[in-house]
Simulated assay, not measured.
Amino acid sequence: MISEGLIRKTALRTLEIEMKALRALQESIDGEFEACVNAVFACQGRLVVTGIGKSALVGQKIVATLNSTGTPALFMHAADAIHGDLGMIQPGDFVLCLSKSGETPEIRVLVPLLKNLGNPIIGMVGNRASYLGRHASYVLCTPVDQEADPNNLAPTASTTAQMALGDALATSLLALRGFSPQDFAQFHPGGALGKQLYLRVSDLYPQNERPAVQEEDSLQQTILEMTSKRLGATAVLNPTGQLSGIVTDGDLRRMLERGNGFDNLLARDIMTSGPKTITENAMAVKALQVMRKNSITQLVVTDEAGTYKGFVHLHDLIREGLI
């Protein structure tokens, strides 16, 4: 169909134009960019991000990224700023102004007000010679020759460049702060992402039963322990109470397939020695990785000394949204 060819052609053209804009953006990572990052890192206030139109939407995303990676930031719409929201800005704050042209009326009104307040201005702008570019303390240049839409009108490549340079700013500040996964978890306690960073096996296994039999226990005792504790498995302990093996549903099926007499079988006769284990202090996402790697649905939990503590099951990880 003609429309299918047009769709593919337009989509590929869009991506090519935006990739070209990103490649050109690499030249903006220069000494001035480094000086800007160092200044923001050293400032005692926050990074106030402002803009209008599509740049305002990009600015809100940049603020979210900054806050989640350890740089205090807030968004101030450029149009609202000149109608009262300018009071959001405090001494010590830096102001990041986003504007493709650097000449919009709101920016031209806002910039002198910011200069009167004495707050350093960072201009993320496509034209260094623009009003914003000339009056900014630091210029983060986002030059874009062509927007991606066929009419070269809708902000597409230009907003892509702004978004990417905002990410570069945030990640550079993150690197200077030595922001760790633990820090990230502190700001992302909700959802699967946060749980991957803070949820431990010790948060999960105490909710489950603790099935266990001795090596010399009978097959009947073993099956009763497995079914009553509802985990589809039981640990097998040696006379000193240490983990010796595990009996799972799979072990029972294999026993039945062999078809030998069952009357005299003991737990040690059907158990799997050396079962997969995980320590109680391990991250829950690590337990998931081990289960996936070995195509199993439960892991024996031990302490650092190897003492049996219980089980963590795949259902626990599903319940917590890790899958």
Rank of each mutant, 00 (worst) to 15 (best):
I121T: 09
L165R: 11
G87W: 04
G59D: 06
A81C: 15
I323W: 00
A164V: 15
K309E: 10
R134D: 11
M291G: 09
M255K: 06
I107W: 09
T171F: 12
S28W: 11
L47T: 08
G250D: 04
G118R: 02
K309A: 10
R292L: 09
G59Y: 01
L57D: 00
G194C: 04
A175Q: 13
L96W: 08
G59V: 13
L176N: 03
V300M: 10
I270C: 03
A164F: 14
A11Q: 10
L47E: 07
P105Y: 04
S158W: 00
E18R: 06
G194P: 04
G51Q: 09
E209A: 15
G232Q: 07
T142I: 09
V247M: 10
K286Y: 07
H135S: 10
V312N: 06
T142E: 05
A129H: 11
I296F: 12
E320F: 01
Q186K: 15
T234M: 11
S28I: 07
F33C: 08
G178F: 14
R108W: 04
G190H: 06
G102H: 14
C36H: 06
A233D: 04
T277H: 10
E16G: 06
Q220V: 11
C141I: 14
N264R: 14
S28K: 13
G123H: 05
D80I: 09
A267T: 07
L169T: 01
P211D: 00
A79R: 15
A78E: 09
T171L: 14
Q146E: 15
T65F: 03
A24V: 00
D249F: 09
S101D: 05
N116P: 01
R134K: 15
